[in-house]
């Protein structure tokens, strides 16, 4: 098993040998019902996004395929092959209800709170 993992690592290393990993800019918002994270992942297709939530750790990984391959590069200001960022979420999240959408290069991750974490209005009996 351990060996397999090593192989996989080598694959990744070769593939992204000329790559650059970027920390995407994020906005994080909270409502009564959910935590919401908006990350900028320009150039990433939805099938190339990997979102994980494990032990309270949210990890976002996006892989970008270079465009215009084979053409003559004239002027170069940036290079991206991976977007990566990870957070520890100190709020009770209903892990099975996490969902995300990718639109215009913006990834929105919805992390719904568990029932017990939601604010409650307490009725006072008179």
């Amino acid at each position: 098993m351990a060996e397999n993992q090593e192989l996989q690592r080598d694959d990744i290393r070769t593939e992204s040998a000329r790559g650059v990993t970027l920390s995407p800019r994020v906005d994080i918002l909270e409502t009564d019902d959910e935590m919401r994270l908006v990350a900028e992942l320009p150039g990433v297709k939805s099938e190339d996004v990997d979102i994980r939530f494990e032990n309270g750790e949210l990890t976002i990984h996006g892989r970008r395929t270079p465009s215009h391959q084979g053409l003559q590069r004239t002027h170069w200001e940036y290079d991206v092959t991976n977007y990566f960022r990870s957070f520890r979420v100190n709020e009770r999240i209903a892990a099975d209800k996490i969902h995300a959408e990718l639109k215009n290069g913006l990834l929105t991750v919805h992390l719904p709170k568990t029932e017990s974490a939601r604010p409650r209005r307490i009725a006072v009996k008179g």
């Binding site: 992204s16 040998a17 990993t21 909270e30 935590m35 750790e57 990890t59 957070f87």
Partner: peptide, 22 residues
């Protein structure tokens, strides 16, 4: 802070992808 950034994770990822090229 409800969202604590995981710097340790970032480092791991960078090691995995080869720091020289990063």
């Amino acid at each position: 802070d409800l969202f604590y950034e995981m710097a340790r994770f970032q480092e791991q990822f960078e090691r995995m992808f080869g720091i020289g090229n990063l």
